[in-house]
Computed example of a mutant assay.
Amino acid sequence: MAEQSSYLLAANARKQSRLMWGLFLLSLALVSMLIAGIVSIRPVTGATAHSSQWLIDWQAFIFTSIAVAVLILLACLWKIMTLGSDGADIARALGATEVTDENSDPAIKRYRNLVEETALAASLPVPAIFVLEKESGINAFAAGKSTDKAAIAVTRGALELLTRDELGAVVAHEFAHIRNLDMRLNLRLIGLIHGLMGLYVVGRIVMHSAGRSRKGGQLVFLGIALVILGLLGAFFGRVMQAAISRQREYLADADASRFTGDPLALAAALKKIGGLQRSGLQEAVHDELEEARHMMFADLSGKLSGWLSTHPPLIQRIQALEPGFNPDTDWPQVQAKPLQK
């Protein structure tokens, strides 16, 4: 039964991957055509002084649509190439600190041992090990395009607040992402969202420059249009993140339970996250983590669920692992500990 469930989840994950590309191409086409429409529309005065109409210069429309689409794609590729394939580089870019053999912190030693044990159980290479030292909430992520260049990071809060079994379950969840090559898709998602968000950045620059130009009014109008379309692109990007990430989280939860043989340990870690969320103590500090929110073990929003959440509702994840969980009475009281300086 567990293998059949895993197969169904994997099939759903592949469907979600195809959905990602479909949503991105739809977003790309829509945004490109809207910008092209703004640029290529022309006023045509009629025979009388009081009659006029608007026509589209189709040559300009086609050229502008292609140019905008190419620029967005180039921004996507640039972001993906900047992130690179090495998970360690990605972890550093997201604010994580690498764990060295010289580190004598008992919590770090326990964490390193768990990573090595899970790598052996999953028949995978030991990844580079990182900690998000400034994060007092419970979270984690895996990064890298391949299993031999992977990295795992957990927050300082996870090290301080989770038991050994709970932390081991979280580590196993991230190993499931590594084994299923979810990291490769995650990097593509970051690149696609960056490309869609690029219009917003360009629009802000155009509006800032409008005051120093003789055509300030036209530039302001163009800047406002780019900002609006950039926000539209960001919305599509968030929809894309939510659509792809949810099924992959369910699959990773199921795989982690098989790695550890203890689904209740993962459920306990998720319940502690819920306790922090209910207290408003789970939100991330690092701004860099926001565009990588779909890579995280738990949602960064600090909410139990949401329409655009990149993760399944926390209650549903827990009940899939512990069917008897009662969300009205079973949340633990968790207090984030002060971070080490």
Rank of each mutant, 00 (worst) to 15 (best):
D101M: 05
V126H: 14
T97I: 08
T100I: 02
S123M: 11
D101T: 05
D105R: 11
E102Y: 14
A121W: 07
K109L: 15
K109T: 08
A107M: 08
S123A: 11
A119L: 08
N103H: 06
P125K: 15
L124C: 01
Y111I: 05
I108C: 06
L120Q: 13
L124A: 01
R110P: 04
E116P: 02
E102S: 13
E116N: 11
L114K: 08
L94D: 00
L94K: 00
P125T: 10
N103M: 12
L114R: 07
E102W: 14
P125L: 14
P106S: 03
L124V: 03
N113W: 14
A96P: 02
I108R: 06
S104G: 04
D105G: 03
A122I: 00
T118C: 07
E102F: 13
D101A: 08
A121L: 09
E117N: 11
A107L: 14
V115D: 07
V115R: 08
T118K: 09
G95S: 01
L124N: 02
R110L: 10
V115T: 06
E117T: 08
T118R: 14
P106W: 11
E98Q: 07
S104F: 08
V99H: 01
N113M: 15
P106N: 09
A122S: 02
A119Y: 12
S104M: 12
I108Y: 11
R112I: 03
S123Q: 13
E116G: 09
G95C: 06
E102M: 13
L120R: 15
G95P: 00
P125Q: 14
N113I: 12
L124P: 00
V115F: 09
L94R: 00
L114E: 08
D101F: 02
D101V: 04
T118V: 09
L124I: 01
E98Y: 07
I108S: 05
I108P: 01
P125F: 14
A119I: 04
L94G: 00
L120M: 15
A122P: 01
V115L: 12
G95N: 04
T118Q: 14
T100F: 03
V126I: 12
L120T: 10
T118S: 09
A96L: 01
L120S: 13
R110S: 08
G95T: 04
P125M: 12
V99M: 02
E98G: 02
E116Y: 12
L120E: 15
D105Q: 06
L94F: 02
L94A: 00
P125H: 13
T97L: 08
Y111A: 01
A107E: 13
T97Y: 07
A96F: 00
T100M: 06
A121M: 05
E116W: 13
E117D: 13
Y111H: 05
L94Q: 00
P106K: 09
S123D: 09
L120F: 10
A96R: 02
A96N: 01
P125C: 11
D101Q: 12
V115P: 00
N113A: 15
T97N: 07
D105E: 07
R112C: 07
I108V: 13
I108A: 03
A122D: 03
L94W: 01
D105W: 11
T97F: 04
N113R: 15
E98I: 02
K109V: 13
I108T: 12
E117M: 08
N113P: 11
V115I: 14
T118G: 04
N103Y: 09
N103K: 09
A96W: 01
L94E: 01
S123R: 15
Y111Q: 03
V99T: 03
E117F: 10
T97W: 07
V99R: 05
